[in-house]
Amino acid sequence: MTRVDLEVRHLRVLLAVADEGSITRAAAVLGLSQPSLTAQLQRIERTVGEPVFVRGRTGVRITQFGRGLLSRARAVLREMDHLLVTSLPADRRELAIGDAGLLLAAVVPRLERDLAAAGTAMSIRVHLDPAAAALVAMLRSGRLDTAIISDVIGFELPKTAAVHRVTVVPVEPVFIALAAHHRLAARPAVDLADLADEAWIINPHDNPGWMASVRAACAHRGYQPRIAYESSHMAGARAFVATGTCVAIADPLSTEDPGVVFRPLIGDPIRGRIDLAWVDQCPVPADLLRRVVAEEYRALVERNAGYRRWWAEHGQILV
């Protein structure tokens, strides 16, 4: 690889590693394997002639040379993004939108109705991914125009200049999924300390901030959660929960299945936040997107009795 082979995609690789602070996390965001990303970094560093990062057991540290290079890379990518925006057709008629949760099922039909009522014919393409970092990466690369980001309070994703974000729901609780016959299911809310002896099932592809928050909250109560099961299939995970062999964290907007109930945690020790994110080339005004997301979120709260009770006391939407 020669110096002239350095391309815009290589600059995005460098910035992903810098923003994530970890080759492992950057590989997940970029959709690459860790060995592939490591090999790319080695080729890039040979090209520029200096190490950009110092690898360590806890992540990567940017070198002094790397700081200067990354500063220039960000400037180049800002110009490239501006070029892409100004070259978009004025009559663009497609919106690419992403979500990490359940909200898009309500937001997309509402957007289609509102846009049609305003005389704007636009198709909407949807991408669902439980990893919020992957949605942000798709926004940065131009594959998405906007996304609903479910972030973890205390373990937030790093901000990036290319992606605008505004908070819609400042605090969203995490509920616990339990078998309907579980010893704690009759309680209106569950103390996290009472789950010390439980096995847990997790989605290995979820935002890693959720599990980090669970571990931190459990450690505060004197134990570490025992991860006995992994499932990226929601129905499969709920089937395991229904047997009573494990518990799981749950989106408060979820509806209960036969055999599974959702209960809030006392004190809300694991909390998230709902943000709307978008990039400059988004063909739909951010104010419209924000209003629709806020209104449809509130409507979903009303359809869920357990969350409705929590919301009556604690809920807030920023409009």
Rank of each mutant, 00 (worst) to 15 (best):
V190W: 07
V152F: 06
I176M: 12
L184Y: 08
T2E: 13
Y223G: 03
T24V: 15
I62Q: 01
V319W: 12
G21T: 00
A216D: 11
A27S: 00
V13Q: 08
I176S: 08
R290K: 14
H82S: 13
P109F: 02
L192D: 07
L178C: 03
L115W: 03
V60W: 01
P269H: 07
L135I: 06
L11A: 00
V293I: 10
A235Q: 13
D257G: 09
E302H: 03
C246V: 08
A121L: 14
D91M: 11
E172W: 07
R125S: 14
I201D: 06
T255D: 01
A286R: 15
A137L: 09
L32H: 14
I249A: 14
A121T: 14
I97V: 09
R92Q: 09
R165K: 08
T160S: 13
M122G: 02
G306R: 00
A73R: 02
C218I: 07
V214S: 11
T245F: 11
P204S: 01
R43P: 02
T2C: 08
I266W: 09
P173G: 01
L69C: 01
M234L: 12
A131L: 08
R3W: 13
T63G: 03
F262H: 14
E256G: 00
E7A: 15
V52F: 04
G31I: 01
G236M: 07
V76K: 05
A39G: 08
L111A: 05
D251F: 00
L195I: 02
A217P: 03
K159H: 12
D145C: 08
V284K: 07
V107M: 12
N304E: 00
L77N: 00
I44G: 01
G259L: 06
W311C: 02
V168P: 09
R263C: 05
I44W: 02
A133N: 07
R3M: 13
D268I: 05
D81P: 03
A305E: 00
L178Y: 04
V247N: 07
L184K: 08
R57S: 11
G59P: 01
L88M: 14
G315F: 06
D280R: 14
D19Q: 12
L83Y: 13
R72W: 10
A212C: 09
R12P: 06
S36I: 10
D280N: 10
L70K: 03
G272C: 07
T2H: 10
D81K: 10
P264F: 02
R143K: 12
V241N: 05
T86L: 15
V108M: 02
V8E: 15
A242Q: 00
S33M: 04
V261D: 00
P264M: 05
R55Y: 05
A250N: 02
E94M: 08
T167D: 10
R291E: 15
L30A: 05
F262P: 08
L195V: 04
I153D: 10
V8I: 15
L104E: 06
D5L: 11
A26F: 04
L288P: 05
C246K: 04
Q34Y: 10
D5E: 13
G244I: 04
P158V: 00
A305G: 01
H233S: 11
K159C: 10
